[in-house]
Design a binder for these strands. Structure first.
Lengths: 220, 220
DNA sequence: ATTTTGTTTAACTAGTTGTTTAATTATATT
DNA sequence: AATATAATTAAACAACTAGTTAAACAAAAT
C-alpha cells in the first residue's frame, strides 16, 4: 500500500479503517520528520497532511515521541526487507562486491527519506536510535553479505586488504549518503549537482570501481 | 582569539569592546546553529551563553537570519584559510593526493562544527548557502590543488582515471564527512564508533589508500 | 441490543520567541 | 571639561505556538 492508495481508498468501502489510518499517519509522519527533524516537525502539520485528525495520532501512537520512534523503526525495517531481496551467493567476489556497492547506491537514490531521518538523528546525537531497540544493525543482510563476500574473496586470493564488512560498508555508504544528502551545498558551492540524472551512471560505476580497486590492490 | 580568551579578557582592561562582543556572539552562535540548526537555535539561548545580552545580537547583526548567514560565511572563510596553508607543489602526484586526502580527513576531525552546519543547511535544501554570496566554492584552495595534482599525475602517467577534481573531492569528503557526522547512528547500529581514537589512523590511511588505488588503477 | 473500537470537534494552557523601546554609561572628540 | 557618539543593559511585547486531552458521537463487532 502506498500513501496515494491509502488516501484514495478512503470512504469507498469502509468508513473506518484503522490499519489505513495508522499507515497513513506513519507515512506522512515519516516525511515530516525526515524533512524537519523531531523537534522541527509539528503534530498539527502531520495531522493536516493526513485524512485524519490530530487526535488519531495520539489515539494510535500516544505521543509525538512515540510516533517518531515508530517512523524510525518502520524505516529501518523497510531497509532490512529491501536488503533481504539481494542475492550474491553464486557470484565471484569481485562481481559480488560491485553489485553490493551498486545496490547501496540505488537504495540511497530511491529512498532519500531514510537518509534524511538518519541525518537528523545524528544531529541530535542519535538519542532515539540509541535509546529504543528494534533497529536492525549487525543483523542487517547487507552486513552479512559483505562478510561472506569478503571471506570468499580472501579465500580465492583476489582480495588483499585487511578490512572487515563494517568498514567496507562505511566506505560505500559514505559516498552514497553524501551524494544524496549533501547535494544542495555541493551544488551551491561547486556548481555541480551530484544527483543530476545525467551523472548518475558515472557515480554508480565510480563507487564500484573504488571498492573493487581498493580490495583487490595490495597493502604496501 | 579563542572563545575562552574572549570570555576571560572581559572587564580586565576595557568595559566596552565591540570587537570582542561581536566575536563572542559569532562564536557562540556558530556552536548553537551547528547543534540545533537555524530554526532550532534560539536567540535567547545564544545570548545566554555569551557575556552580552540579546539586544547586542540585534545591534550588531540585525536579525537571527543575518546572524546565521554571518556564522556560515565565517565558517567557510575559516576553511578556506586552513586550506591555504597546505602545500603540495613539489611532491610526486601519489604522495600529494594522499596528503590532500589526509588533510581533509584531519580537517573534518578537527572541525566537526563546520560539518554540522553544512548538514543542517542540506536538511533545509541549502537555502541560505544558495541565497547568500560570500561562500568560496570553486575558488577553494583544495579544489585548485586537486586539479594541479590530477593534471600532474596524468602527465606523469601514474593516474589513469578520467575523473576531475570535484569528483575526487566528493570521494574524499564523503568518507571524512560520514565518519564524523554519522558516527552516532553508526555506533548505535553496529557497535563501532568510527571516531574512536584508537581507530583514527586506520581510517586516515584507508581513505588515502582508497583514493590512490582508484586513481592509479586502469579502467577496464 | 449492547459493547467495543474508531473518529471528530474543540479547547486549553502554559509557554515561546524574535524583535524593539527606552534608558544608561563608557569612550571618543573637540 | 563639555559634548557627541557608540556600546550596553533591562524589560516588555504581542502574536502565536503546539503538544495534549476532554467529551461526545458513530460505526463495527459481539
Amino acid at each position: 500500500m502506498t500513501i496515494e492508495e491509502a488516501k484514495t481508498t478512503r470512504d469507498e468501502q469502509r468508513l473506518r479503517d484503522p490499519e489505513r489510518t495508522k499507515f497513513e499517519i506513519l507515512a506522512v509522519a515519516t516525511q515530516e520528520f525526515a524533512n524537519r527533524g523531531f523537534a522541527g516537525a509539528r503534530v498539527d502539520e502531520i495531522a493536516a497532511k493526513t485524512r485524519t485528525t490530530k487526535r488519531m495520532i495520539y489515539y494510535y501512537f500516544g505521543s509525538k515521541e512515540r510516533l517518531y520512534v515508530a517512523t524510525l523503526e518502520k524505516s529501518y525495517e523497510d531497509i532490512r526487507v529491501t536488503e533481504q531481496n539481494v542475492d550474491v551467493e553464486n557470484l565471484d567476489p569481485v562481481t559480488a562486491i560491485r553489485l553490493l556497492a551498486e545496490f547501496t547506491f540505488d537504495r540511497h537514490e530511491a529512498n532519500p527519506t531514510f537518509s534524511r531521518l538518519v541525518s537528523h538523528e545524528n544531529m541530535q546525537n542519535a538519542q532515539f536510535v540509541t535509546a529504543a531497540s528494534g533497529f536492525p544493525g549487525l543483523e542487517r543482510p547487507i552486513i552479512k553479505m559483505l562478510e561472506q563476500v569478503l571471506e570468499h574473496g580472501r579465500a580465492d586470493g583476489v582480495f588483499h586488504r585487511d578490512i572487515d564488512a563494517l568498514d567496507v560498508h562505511m566506505l560505500i555508504s559514505s559516498f552514497c549518503f553524501f551524494r544524496i544528502n549533501n547535494r544542495y551545498t555541493f551544488a551551491a558551492n561547486f556548481g555541480r549537482d551530484p544527483v543530476e540524472a545525467s551523472r548518475r551512471s558515472i557515480y554508480r560505476q565510480m563507487i564500484g570501481d573504488v571498492v573493487v580497486e581498493y580490495l583487490t590492490s595490495s597493502p604496501t
